[in-house]
Amino acid sequence: MTALESLSFTVEPGVTGLVGANGAGKSTLIKILLGLLPPSGGQAQVLGLDIAAQGSQIRERVGFMPEYDTLPPDVSATEFVVHMARMSGLPATAARERAADVLRHVGLYEERYRPIGGYSTGMKQKVKLAQALVHDPQLVFLDEPTNGLDPNGRDEMLGLIRRIGAEFGISVLVTSHLLGELERVCDHVVIIDGGKLLRSQAVEAFTQTSGQLLVEVEDRSDDLGRLLFDRGVAVRPEGRFLMIDIADEKTYDQIRDGVVELGLALIRMEQARHHIEEVFQQ
């Protein structure tokens, strides 16, 4: 089976999203970059280090949060994160200090002495994130970090990822098959499918403004839509919003006049933006 084929791209500092459906080759790529899986061909460098000859040096400088639950159930978060810090070369005292710091950052400080086996899925994900950060790496690989989390847990994890990139100054390569999540936290997105590169681009380029207006009124949006349609405006309902094609500057005036004429309360009128998911589907 060919997992990756002619895949070539560069990851810059910041938060980069690696997007693809399940089986697209995301986890395989991370294992190759960590020097854990030898490629059958090609070359790669991580932080300027060759994956074939300098895997151990790469793993000293890189943190890894695996997708699957690989945590020992019978030890506490503190014991486990300290152990991982020692494995990365930190002295005992420094390892304990760093473990306490990262567990505080991920929101597990109060629960740090409990056995991991009694943790919720969200707490286990935070332990995996903490051990990836404990040795103060230059780069972290986060493989499906929101896997198995409820909406609140997802939001919390995405907030932590933003902080890693913005406040800690650590570059991040994060994988996901949920495009909307990566749109919220990433500076750059790499899309792969069947092991091949589809696109590598800044998020801003994906989410550039479209030629449509998103209009929201307090109520009677159907009436506004019919009125604008009768006056030659291209409009379509989308939930509680109206999506209106911008023909020219007069479109704004027609919307304003229609809202006034019907006595409606205008909540929002803004230029709509593309989503990464639209580009991926195309």
Rank of each mutant, 00 (worst) to 15 (best):
M1T: 11
V260P: 07
E5Y: 03
L71V: 13
G17I: 06
I116S: 02
E60T: 09
L266H: 04
H275S: 15
L90T: 06
Q212M: 07
M123C: 11
Q281A: 15
R220A: 12
S40M: 11
L47V: 06
G55M: 01
L34K: 04
A92P: 04
K250E: 15
G159W: 11
L36G: 02
E238W: 07
Y68S: 14
H188T: 12
R220P: 10
S6P: 04
R96Y: 02
Q201S: 14
G153E: 11
S27G: 04
D219N: 15
T70C: 05
L214T: 12
F280C: 08
V217T: 05
E156R: 13
G165S: 09
L36R: 05
L266M: 09
T78Q: 12
L129M: 14
V19R: 01
R220M: 08
I116C: 01
R226G: 05
S56G: 09
H83M: 14
I191F: 06
L224A: 02
G25C: 02
T16G: 07
V215K: 02
M243G: 02
M157P: 14
A77N: 01
P137K: 06
V189P: 05
T251G: 10
V217W: 03
T146E: 11
M84N: 08
V190C: 03
L129K: 11
Q54N: 04
Q282N: 07
G55R: 01
Q131V: 07
D101K: 08
I164H: 09
F9V: 02
E181L: 11
M65K: 04
V82C: 00
I244K: 00
I192N: 07
M243N: 08
A21P: 11
E261F: 13
R96G: 06
M123G: 10
R256N: 15
F206W: 13
L264W: 12
E238K: 11
G225F: 04
E67F: 13
E79Q: 10
E238H: 09
M87F: 04
A272S: 13
S76H: 05
E12K: 10
L266F: 08
D187E: 12
S56L: 15
L33G: 01
P13E: 06
V81E: 00
I58A: 02
T93I: 04
I170P: 03
A24I: 09
Y109P: 05
V81F: 03
D245R: 14
L49V: 10
C186L: 09
N22Q: 02
V11D: 03
Y113T: 13
S221M: 12
G232T: 13
I246T: 10
S210C: 10
A85K: 05
V11C: 08
D223H: 14
G148F: 10
S76E: 02
L4H: 02
G225T: 07
G232P: 13
A21I: 10
V140W: 00
Q212L: 10
D219G: 12
F206T: 09
A130M: 03
I267F: 03
V46D: 04
K196N: 07
V190E: 00
D50E: 11
Q131M: 05
K124V: 07
A166L: 14
E183V: 11
Q54D: 14
V235T: 08
F280E: 06
S88W: 07
L29N: 07
V203R: 12
S171F: 02
E67D: 13
T10I: 08
S8P: 04
H177M: 01
S120P: 12
G63P: 00
T146I: 10
P91V: 04
I246R: 05
A95C: 03
E111A: 15
T28H: 04
A100H: 12
F229Y: 12
